[in-house]
Structures are given as structure tokens and as C-alpha cells.
């Protein structure tokens, strides 16, 4: 029994945190709204570090690691509000292709995705669009009969406008066929949905960490009635409650990643618990953050909205809290 990250896992997360603090600060996230929804150069650096292919086998340029080794890094991605599709690529596409694609092309795709030279779009059912679909050379798309691996040249894209201007989303139209269907397509789809839920939950935890930190900094500086507004209990108690909800969501997220790694039979239920708790916590933290920033937070000049709008999108993505609670309810109460 040891429910704590290993020194190695913490070292990886710290390394990624340093990279993102340096290369993906708020100004660059903001610039991604006006640009192509990516931070220039960042994807290559994540590939060079091995983050993209962390879960790919070592023979295909990956690091051969497990979901639980990656989850703290995904939270770092959320902390930085990274606009690039880190979670969909590293936490969903790579292990799905690794476990379920059996064609000769699979190894090539893993190698190219890990190296950052090929990009992948992930379209799971229930989600409104595919992130960065225009860049993708290959897609994992879910149909009624499970998951398909689809070439980019047979899909049609229709750009969508997200409230988060850094999210480049497209609706993807395509025709499923036996040729595109993965061998165990239904299992692949359910595992991919679970992985996506956990990865998004981890990102939400990171987003919430930053929103809370921004707010603590702000209310410690901002003075009204001659004192920092952070000295008022009305402010303190909101932020304390937000922290409690967030800190008790995190262990559910880490556990869900571990359960996927170890093949725990309850892994799917654990994924739902993680996404429900992280979505709710990000909601609580986001509301408290905005309220405690006051009118200054209700402007596009304040960086808070970059994180807040991402959290709105990710709360709904990969199943919202209510949907996941219903899944837990079905498992628990029948």
C-alpha cells in the first residue's frame, strides 16, 4: 500500500511543469486564441521529452510507461491551460492504438505520433467535435459499433466555434466501414472513453489549481475598505471550500489512472468517479475564482477567463458530472 506518486513520476511532472511555465505561459495561451490554437514549437518539445509517446512501447519510440505515470503530467497540462491536444494524443490515442490497432501501420503511427511528426484526432461519442482535426493525419473515431482508425483523407471537417478561443474544434463527418473498424472495436471505444474521462479530469484539476492560485494572489493584493479583500471571511470561506472540493477530487483521479494501469475490474467506474468529482470541483473553483476577482475577473484583459473557459469546455467533454454519476449509480444501485 502506497498511494503517492513515485519520485520518478513527480520528477516527470516537475520537468513538464518547468517546460510549460517557460514555453506555455498565459501570454502564449492568449496568443493561441488569435493564432492556430497551438503554442508554436511546444508540440515538438513535448515529443522530444517523450511525453507524447510516454505510453507507446519503447520499440516505437515511446517510453513504455503506464497511465498512472502520465496522469500528473496531464494535470500539469491543465495547470498551464495548454491548448495543444496533449491529453487526447498521449493519454487516449497512443494507448488505444497500442492496445487495439493490429495493422502493420500501427507501429508506424505510434512512432510518428510519439515523434510529433504525425498528429491524431480523437472523436469519441458524446463529444461535440474533434480538437485540432485540421492538423490530423489519422483519426480515432467512435461509431455505434465501436472505435475506428480512419485516414484523414476520408473525413470531412466542419469548424466549430468554442467559447474557448484556443480550442480548435471541428465536427467530423465520415463513413464507418469494416476496413476502418478496430478488431475489438467496442472494447477499444469503452477503454478510450474511460481514458479520456480520466485525462480530462486530470486536466480539470490542473486548471482548477491555477484558478485558485490566481485568486489567492489577487485577493491578497486587492485592497478595499483599507485591507486586502482576502482578509474577509466571506472571501476566505469560499476559497477554503473550493480547495476542499478540489483536494478531495484529486485522489479519485489518481486512483482512476492507477486502476487503468493495473487492469482493475472497477476501472471504468473509477473513471466515472474521477470525472464527476473533477468536473464539480472545477465548477466550484471557477465560480469562486470569478466571484472573488470581482469585476476585474469579468474582463478579457484578466487571464482568468482563459482558464475558466477551458474548464467550462472540459467539464462537458468526455461526459459531464451528471452523466458519470449516472454510470456510478448504475454500477452501485443497479
Amino acid at each position: 500500500m502506497r498511494f503517492a506518486f513515485t519520485d520518478d513520476q513527480l520528477a516527470f511532472a516537475d520537468a513538464v511543469r518547468e517546460l510549460l511555465a517557460d514555453q506555455c505561459d498565459a501570454a502564449r495561451v492568449r496568443a493561441a486564441w488569435d493564432g492556430d490554437g497551438r503554442v508554436p514549437g511546444l508540440w515538438d518539445r513535448l515529443a522530444e521529452m517523450g511525453v507524447l509517446g510516454m505510453l507507446a512501447p519503447e520499440g516505437t519510440g515511446g517510453l513504455g510507461m503506464a497511465d498512472v505515470d502520465l496522469v500528473a503530467i496531464l494535470a500539469e497540462g491543465g495547470r498551464a491551460a495548454i491548448p495543444d491536444p496533449l491529453a487526447a494524443t498521449a493519454a487516449v490515442a497512443v494507448p488505444t492504438i497500442r492496445d487495439h490497432a493490429q495493422s502493420d501501420d500501427a507501429e508506424r503511427w505510434l512512432a510518428e505520433i510519439s515523434a510529433g511528426t504525425a498528429r491524431v484526432g480523437v472523436g469519441l461519442s458524446g463529444n461535440v467535435g474533434v480538437l485540432h482535426a485540421a492538423d490530423a493525419a489519422i483519426f480515432l473515431l467512435e461509431a455505434d459499433d465501436g472505435l475506428h482508425l480512419v485516414d484523414a483523407d476520408v473525413v470531412e471537417l466542419q469548424p466549430l466555434d468554442s467559447v474557448d478561443g484556443a480550442r480548435r474544434l471541428s465536427a467530423v463527418t465520415w463513413t464507418p466501414s469494416a476496413a476502418t473498424r478496430l478488431p475489438s472495436a467496442e472494447l477499444a471505444a469503452s477503454q478510450a472513453r474511460d481514458r479520456a474521462a480520466v485525462a480530462t479530469a486530470a486536466e480539470l484539476c490542473g486548471l482548477a489549481d491555477t484558478m485558485l492560485a490566481m485568486t489567492v494572489a489577487y485577493v491578497s493584493e486587492r485592497r478595499q475598505f483599507g485591507v486586502p479583500i482576502g482578509s474577509f471571511q466571506a472571501v476566505k470561506h469560499q476559497l477554503a471550500d473550493a480547495l476542499v472540493e478540489l483536494e478531495f477530487a484529486k485522489p479519485l483521479v489518481w486512483r482512476a489512472a492507477l486502476s487503468r494501469s493495473t487492469g482493475d475490474p472497477s476501472a471504468s467506474m473509477h473513471a466515472s468517479m474521477a470525472k464527476a468529482a473533477a468536473s464539480d470541483a472545477a465548477h466550484t473553483v471557477g465560480l469562486a475564482a470569478l466571484q472573488c476577482h470581482g469585476a476585474i475577473g469579468y474582463t478579457v484583459e484578466c487571464d482568468l477567463h482563459l482558464w475558466l473557459k477551458r474548464s467550462w469546455a472540459l467539464r462537458a467533454q468526455d461526459g459531464d458530472a451528471a452523466a458519470h454519476r449516472r454510470l456510478v449509480e448504475a454500477a452501485l444501485l443497479g
Binding site: 513515485t6 511525453v51 486512483r255
Partner: peptide, 18 residues
Amino acid sequence: MRRLHAYLTGRQNLRVDL
């Protein structure tokens, strides 16, 4: 850019284990 492998601590005795 250092690969993540460069950050391995070598302390393999620890793991996450429920």
C-alpha cells in the same frame, strides 16, 4: 531537450500501489 528518461531517479523501490 532532455528525454524524460533523464529524470529517472533510479529509486525503483517506490510505486503507486493500492
